[in-house]
Write a protein that binds this DNA or RNA. Structure first.
Lengths: 358, 358
DNA sequence: CTGAAAGCGCTTACAG
DNA sequence: CTGAAAGCGCTTACAG
């Protein structure tokens, strides 16, 4: 038993619900009123203004083929009801929805490295005339994927590590192509950096600088990137028959790295440290310089500050990754093949050593 | 005279067009075939597979209430036709379109300052559970606004300077709220920095450092920001009865600023320069340090590098601007008032002097 | 100048 | 398990 009503600038349904709870006495009844707000439609305006929906539509679209009297009456009603056009319906009927939007899904927290990737993506899409729809896993993950499912865009970039199995299935059933960025999976499109190689470069750097007691410092986040990067590092040491002196994990900020490094220097044991990222390494560098220690420090990523502060590092060109990712997804879309007939793009980018003498 | 046909993995209309050219002999005829590609719909699949559209829809949505034989037949046809579901239709019927997407429109080229604003926006929207749809004026401007018109999002941030009159009209007729960022218009929502004040701070800095022969350097772009910033600068000088020594405009890059500053120092006239932006000022700073000149240099923005390199500057907190902009548009949307009844948000942020002794 | 109707591509009760 | 039908909110010829 319900009725549609006009109330408080908005149409509402008022729904009376009775709930019978099967208690011992089998008689307890609760009643609720459920109020459902309904969006105002062109039909409502038509009914209230006394015109047909066609006329209302013409007025709303600035059509000139309406009497100005009609025009005003309709506009007045529309304003009063706080009418907002339903873009989705409009898109459907006009067929004018953009075919040139790329989606990207990102983790909750983004560091400078991700921001640079995004800048690269943006630059490339700009060139190609595509728009970018950014989804963040700020809310519940499933909710975001619901949005992704029902949003209209042509392809998705995934800068999030791995997707879950059902997420992949959903995307495929919606025929939505996607490309992993900075992550790799043999079965899916992936553009990523060779972390194993990069870790090795860092090891070589410290060896070249004649370090003998080499230390590894990472943060707590267990990612595939860290695993590969550190494995690459250890493999090279092993190859040179150098034993890893120490391996420490700290929280992901510069200050933690700073105080750790101070301690290490004062203990006077390690003579070279490889930090998982420049963010950490900058803390280490600060400690080194303050104490004027000869300890060697190398980071990873080559963020802008590394250049200014003279930190040796392993460069991963984030901008290039972003541009490449954007270019790839657009190319895949242009081929317009069914998702299971598309050949997988699997591209590994090589990092490079940047020796700034630190 | 045309017919629908199945060809090359896609439905096509082939349209035969005859054109009569009214020449002298009045007889010349040209004929074309116009080929129109039509998207494959669920109806096409139904027709070809021999099932009803309802059944096809159930199969496509992974429904379990279909015979597996039916399921396979339908899927096979869908694959063969390279069927792609129309998300827009799906959204309309399910009503599941995201109400929590904010749009942003950006100029073609974006500098670090804009990127930081975007990072701020992103951070805030993340917090609020909103997605971001980024439009760039890479393509023709009108085309982008067509996209904006037909895209489904709730509010728009404008980081583009001013909108044209018809663009504003379009947004309003679509009931799309918008907020200017880093630009201001008394009649529209605006969040921006006080450039007049900022320019004044720069002037005070140089005066405090006892500069007597003060110079102004900008790039060629005539923006409202530049006008106000430089006017503020001059106003303060005028107030102190100091005459502007020189005013030069160069191209927007560090190198131009570097060589200009070298020349200025060698000429030995000016003893203080205010650069329109840190990007330029960093070039000036480099020249100053190379020659070990005592000339004073101040920039504007406080980009990251300014901190690392010890450049005095006027800080505009881009991150704050972005966060505020995102928060504001969401708040406006939550109030859900008709666009002409919304009171205008007009918020001016104050820049601050950062003295790093340069 | 306006109304009634068809249709955009899909989903989803409702019968059978 | 499947088909026919109604409907999402709009636009747009087509008559009148």
């Amino acid at each position: 038993m319900f009725y549609k009503n006009y109330l408080n600038n908005c149409f509402v349904f008022i729904l009376k619900i009775s709930i019978f709870l099967h208690n011992a006495d089998n008689s307890c009844i609760k009643q609720y009123y459920l109020i459902i707000k309904m969006a105002v439609t062109i039909k409502d305006i038509a009914k209230i203004s006394g015109y047909g929906v066609g006329t209302v539509s013409r007025v709303l679209n600035g059509g000139t083929l309406v009497k100005s009297e009609t025009r005003e009456r309709v506009m007045q009603v529309a304003r009063k009801l706080n009418y907002k056009p339903n873009k989705v319906a409009k898109m459907l009927v006009t067929g004018k929805f953009s075919q040139s939007t790329i989606g990207i899904i990102l983790p909750k927290i983004t560091h400078r490295f991700s921001m640079e990737i995004i800048a690269g993506i943006y630059t490339k899409l700009n060139e190609l005339g595509y728009n970018l729809l950014v989804f963040n896993i700020g809310k519940k993950r499933e909710e975001v994927f619901e949005h992704i499912r029902y949003s209209h865009f042509s392809g998705l970039l995934v800068l999030l590590g791995s997707l879950k199995e059902d997420e992949v299935l959903m995307l495929k059933s919606e025929n939505t192509h996607f490309v992993y960025l900075d992550y790799h999976d043999r079965n899916e499109n992936s553009i990523f950096f060779n972390n194993h190689l990069g870790g090795g470069l860092a090891a070589k750097y410290l060896m070249d600088k004649k370090c003998k007691r080499i230390m590894l410092v990472g943060d707590y986040a267990k990612t595939i990137q860290r695993e590969e990067r550190f494995r690459g590092f250890k493999d090279v040491l092993k190859g040179a028959q150098i034993e890893l002196f120490d391996e420490v994990y700290i929280s992901s900020d510069e200050k933690a790295a700073y105080s750790l490094t101070k301690k290490v220097i004062k203990a006077g044991k390690a003579d070279g440290i490889f930090f998982y990222s420049d963010d950490l390494a900058l803390g280490g560098l600060k400690a080194k310089r303050e104490i004027q220690s000869s300890i060697r420090i190398i980071g990873y990523d080559d963020i802008e500050a590394a250049g200014y502060l003279g930190l040796s590092t392993v460069r991963q060109n984030a901008h290039t990754l972003g541009k490449l990712g954007a270019g790839t997804i657009v190319e895949i879309l242009k081929k317009d093949k069914p998702i299971n007939e598309t050949e997988v793009v699997y591209r590994c980018l090589e990092p490079e050593l940047v020796d700034r003498g630190s």
